[in-house]
Design a protein around this nucleic acid. Structure first.
Ligand SMILES: [Mg+2]
Length: 331
DNA sequence: GCGACAG
DNA sequence: ATCTTGTCGC
């Protein structure tokens, strides 16, 4: 009996059809809010995604969800977004008299029957969560990998690089293209990018290429549930990983040291990451993914952080994945 | 109740 | 993340 926790990615729910099943339930003379729909999906933090899906600008990579009840969703204060004028169906229900807020109070409905699919994903992350400091299962580092994902129209391209250390020679470059299976929602990045990353790693491994430690574009322990994508990659591979993010997802900055580096603390005051910086460079947010200590992670990032914004293995992965994602023939 | 929000 | 040209500055 294994007590090592899950080693497989979870089943990925089709969030768009889950959202449609919720919209189907709204009585014809009632309306709901983006936040209520997100809550019914399992996490109110998905509200911006709901809003973009129903009424967002048709940007590249994101299709607008066409549903006959899309008009039945408004903001929690009763207002509509910018660039949205009241649909005929809303006007037929008297919107917005006497005021949007007042009108919403009378029409609001949220008695959804739902499995809350995001809750399953939360549970999966909770099972991976790094409650304690990781033991250092990393010996001498001879190779450092980088993982990133770029996007085109209905296309996700994972990029992988492996650099020899300390020479800096790039030993491996690989990309794989897939269909995006899940949207970007803060806190749920792993369900969008984990699969492509793992498949790239496995293809490289099948050709005899491996890395001692992987730098993952995103966070590890620096995550609302202590289990970002770097943790997911590390736990699935049972290999040391480091999360490297370009902006802060959560946590609060402690006092910076003389070099401008600052620990990142959770609500209890425990360190969950480190903001690192170099003169004239935007900071990076480093966290443990799996299998090493935070100070070791920071040392490794600094050892491959040269003149560019990103540490070299991730910069290469970013470059090759982006180039392929923009290739017209890939559509 | 408000705001914050990796890629 | 992506859509997008030139431009300001080390
Ligand atoms: Mg990325």
């Amino acid at each position: 009996m294994s007590r090592d926790g899950p080693l497989l990615p979870p089943p990925i729910p089709d969030l768009e059809s889950e959202l449609c099943r919720l919209l189907d339930q709204i009585p014809v003379d009632r309306v709901t809010t983006y936040g209520e729909l997100a809550t019914a999906l399992g996490d109110r933090r998905a509200a911006p995604w709901v809003a973009r899906s129903l009424h967002g600008r048709p940007t590249a990579g994101m299709s607008m969800l066409e549903h006959p009840r899309a008009w039945s969703v408004v903001r929690r204060d009763g207002s509509l977004g910018v660039a949205r004028s009241p649909e005929p169906e809303l006007l037929a229900l008297g919107y917005p008299a006497p005021s949007p807020t007042n009108w919403l109070t009378k029409r609001r409905w949220a008695e959804f029957v739902t499995r809350e699919p995001l809750r399953d994903l939360i549970e999966w992350q909770d099972a991976l969560s790094l409650r304690d400091d990781q033991p250092d299962r990393l010996g001498a580092v001879k190779t450092i990998g980088g993982l990133d994902v770029s996007y085109g129209t209905n296309l996700a391209v994972a990029g992988l690089s492996i650099m020899d250390f300390p020479s800096g020679e790039c030993l491996v470059q690989k990309t794989i293209a897939r269909r995006p299976a899940f949207p970007y929602i803060p806190g749920y990045l792993s369900f969008r990018e984990l699969r492509p990353m793992l498949e790239a790693v496995r293809e490289a491994a099948a050709m005899g290429h491996r890395a001692d430690v992987w730098l993952v574009d995103g966070n590890g322990r620096l995550h609302p549930r202590g289990a970002g994508i770097a943790t997911a990659v590390g736990q699935m591979l049972r290999q040391p990983t480091i999360g490297v993010a370009k902006s802060l997802l959560c946590g609060r900055l402690d006092k910076p040291d003389a070099k401008g580096c600052a620990p990142i603390l959770d609500r209890e005051g425990s360190p969950i990451g480190m903001m690192t910086t170099k003169p004239g460079r935007k900071p990076l947010y480093v966290s443990v993914g799996y299998g090493l200590t935070l100070s070791r992670a920071v040392d490794i990032v600094h050892s491959v952080w040269r003149q560019h914004r990103l540490p070299e293995p991730i910069r290469i992965a970013d470059g090759i994945s982006r180039r392929r994602a923009r290739l017209p023939a890939e559509d």
